[in-house]
Design a protein around this nucleic acid. Structure first.
Length: 385
RNA sequence: GUGGCCAUAGCUCAAUGGUAGAGCUCCAGAUUGUGGUUCUGGCUGUUGCGGGUUCGAGUCCCGUUGGCCACC
């Protein structure tokens, strides 16, 4: 299922190929986030043109709306949203963090008061896997508890133990429910839904290690590093990854959940991570921020009002080929939908192209240089040039 | 022509005679397994104009200009 094709000489960067029912994913890979069955502002055709290798969906959000039965009616999430590439579904574990005020955790699972109308909504390790099987995603995530930062040791330890118990139940439930998966337009009839475990343990090295080892014993198809991007400083985040990765098997893909900024992605690839998802390119786009190799541009800033240049001079995306910074700034200020669409297309192009360059660099055994050059040229807040 | 009401930040409006404020706009910042949500800062005033009363006037008095309404 996962083929490790090369490892960089000077870093832990890896080149890989992950086989799923709806296609092969070249890693390192970035996965655009499409929580509610849509990568916000972008059509599946555009995602294909951007060469998005795989997108995300969310179990909790799709469960509360439109509901599993509706998606089952349409023959699974791929047919429902007309996307025939791979989909990874997050289990709802992150909503334990992001919707902390609306949920209660027990050993059985999580009780949410759903964020739309307050209806009691229960998700257990078993139901999370059943829902993901019904959605027909290519990669299903186990249900995990994502604790906040900062987090006391005692709580982090209990939480990681709960996540470990849930992982066992998810593994059992997955093998039972996989046969219910929709067949739809999958390209690879022999491939079945993959299931990834999630390493937790907050910022504590021994908990990270225990968590990783207990998951590896269950032999998942891949391993995610979770509990990051929950408010911790960047150094803590890097340490959490460094404290998890050594205990994961080299022949399985590693996925850092919810990350990150462009420099962070390269630093994480150098630490042996293969897959990423992050809302930054799409969310910041809707607030007027564009990514470039030189750093981010806040296109709402007045300095861009008469700027005739494209967002990025050498960029091949639709926005940069056709429109000026000044025009896109106007669209964002005027709250025209085209503006956030164009920046979203640009930002996704930027992230996906960065991964393509990273793969080339690993292949050429020059990843460290590539990373260093990029990080040096990248400034958090780029002014107009 | 007579009477009444009104005039405060770019806009819409607050402010017992006691340090002139809010919302929006504008200018910035935050956002990491998604709320186009939200949050956090910042700039802006001869209180239409001229007098007067008062320790002190956006507020009270007189005049004046402009707008709106009613009635000849």
């Amino acid at each position: 299922m996962f083929e490790l094709r090369a490892t960089d000489q000077n870093t832990k960067a890896r080149l890989g190929r992950l086989r799923t029912p709806h296609g092969v994913i070249e890693t390192p890979a970035f996965m655009p986030v499409g929580t509610q069955g849509s990568v916000k502002a972008v059509s599946p055709r555009e995602l294909r043109e951007l060469n998005a290798p795989i997108i995300l969906g969310n179990t909790y959000h799709l469960f509360v709306r439109p509901g599993v039965e509706v998606i089952r009616h349409f023959g699974g999430l791929h047919r429902f949203m007309n996307w025939d590439g791979p989909i990874l579904t997050d289990s709802g574990g992150y909503q334990i963090f992001s919707l902390a005020k609306l949920r209660k955790i027990s050993d059985e699972g999580v009780h949410f008061q759903n964020h739309l109308d307050g209806t009691p909504t229960f998700i257990s390790p078993e139901s999370a896997m059943e829902i993901q099987a019904a959605l027909g995603s290519d990669i299903a995530m186990v249900l995990d508890e994502c604790p906040p930062w900062p987090c006391e040791y005692d709580y982090a330890a209990k939480s990681a133990e709960l996540t470990a118990r849930w992982a066992t139940r998810c593994q059992d439930a997955a093998s039972a429910s996989r046969r219910f998966a929709p067949t739809d337009h999958r390209q690879d009839a022999d491939a079945t839904q993959l299931v990834f475990g999630i390493v937790q343990g907050a910022t504590f090295p021994e908990l990270r290690r225990q968590s990783a080892e207990s998951l590896v014993a269950l032999d998942f198809d891949g391993y995610a590093i979770g509990g990051v991007s929950v408010g911790e400083p960047e150094e803590e985040m890097m340490r959490a990854v460094e404290n998890s990765e050594p205990f994961l098997p080299a022949e399985k893909p590693r996925y850092a959940m919810g990350l990150g900024t462009p420099p962070q992605l390269l630093q994480l690839i150098a630490r042996g991570v293969d897959m990423f998802d992050c809302v930054l390119p799409t969310r910041l786009a809707r607030n007027g921020t564009a990514f470039t190799a030189a750093g981010t541009l806040n296109l709402k800033n007045a300095e861009f009002a008469r700027d005739e240049k494209p967002i990025a001079e050498s960029c091949a995306c639709e926005a940069c080929r056709q429109f000026t910074r000044g025009y896109i700034r106007h669209l964002i200020k005027a709250e025209e939908i085209l503006g956030l669409r164009l920046i979203t297309l640009h930002n996704l192009h930027f992230y996906l192209d960065l991964m393509r360059q990273a793969r080339v660099a690993v292949e050429q055994n020059a990843f460290a240089t590539f990373r260093d050059n990029f990080v040096r040229g990248y400034r958090v807040h780029q002014r107009a040039d």
